[in-house]
Design a protein around this nucleic acid. Sequence first.
DNA 1: TCAACAAGGATGCTAGTATC
DNA 2: GATACTAGCATCCTTGTTGA
Length: 296
Amino acid sequence: MTASVPSGFGHLLNPAPPLLPQPPTRSRLRLFVREQPQAARACGSGDRCRRPVDPIPIVQLLMTDFNPISEEDRRQLTSNQYIVSCQLLPVAEDSERSRKGRASARSNAENSFGRYGRGLGNSDVDQLIARQPGGNLSGGTYMSPFSADQDPDPSTAPSHPQSMTNLVTNSTAATLPRPPRRPPCTNICAPNPATFFVFSDLCVRTAGEYQLLFTLMNPFEAMQSKSSPILDEVRSETFEVFSAKDFRGMQRTPELARGLRRLGVQGIKLRDKTRESANGGAAQSVSEEDVDGGED
DNA sequence: TCAACAAGGATGCTAGTATC
DNA sequence: GATACTAGCATCCTTGTTGA
């Protein structure tokens, strides 16, 4: 799967110079990093992207105050005219904040729900982007949406965010690292559609600590209205890229990725076990628990 | 329909090279 | 001389095909 940039929109999507945080849009669409990258092996300059980030980053499209019975909401949520770009943000090596950020997983919460009031300031982002070496990220950095009638992994499915007005009355949502879980579905509610952007072949060339910046854009609308195509942005948690000798191996493919693959998403590789576990090693059980949180 | 086989791709390991 | 990085190789896994 390569970068799927609609022809004629290259000038809108050119990653250089890096996209800086845009003024808040009126869009109800929000990005949510459904599957956080944990680690990667540096693929070097000539490795042609054969060491993808593990697990593969999966970004889900959410909609503020989504109404499941609204045809218009469902149509917008599953529209295929959106694209998401991915940029690599190096994290300062001595930054204690990067570790704290990883622990609190604040990226999703602040970008998707509290982005107007909190989160990294512009100066912080400027600092991050200023350190970004050109071309350190390879693979498919632009992704088209994949829509499913139902979430492939309902157990981890986030609910759609509420508007700021609603957040005031439900203040806990603003501090959650991820959106609150969807309430149990009754017989009268139809299955909510879900739209994903699967970055299945992202590779990082050099070792270090990074974050991924995902930017939701609607190039078609931007062409018509001549406005900013950026609808929302979200950052992943900090993850580490290891050199070949330090890399501790690939993780088991998460359930979400498996579900998406079953639904027909191309480029997702199934990995049931690492080589350690395949050879009877004991290291695997530790690493899987660390990553999957002891999934079944 | 199930099982076995083969081919291609993915991944971990290691040797070689460059830099400090 | 030591360390880090890069590139190549070997092995393993997944998937598709064919035969019983």
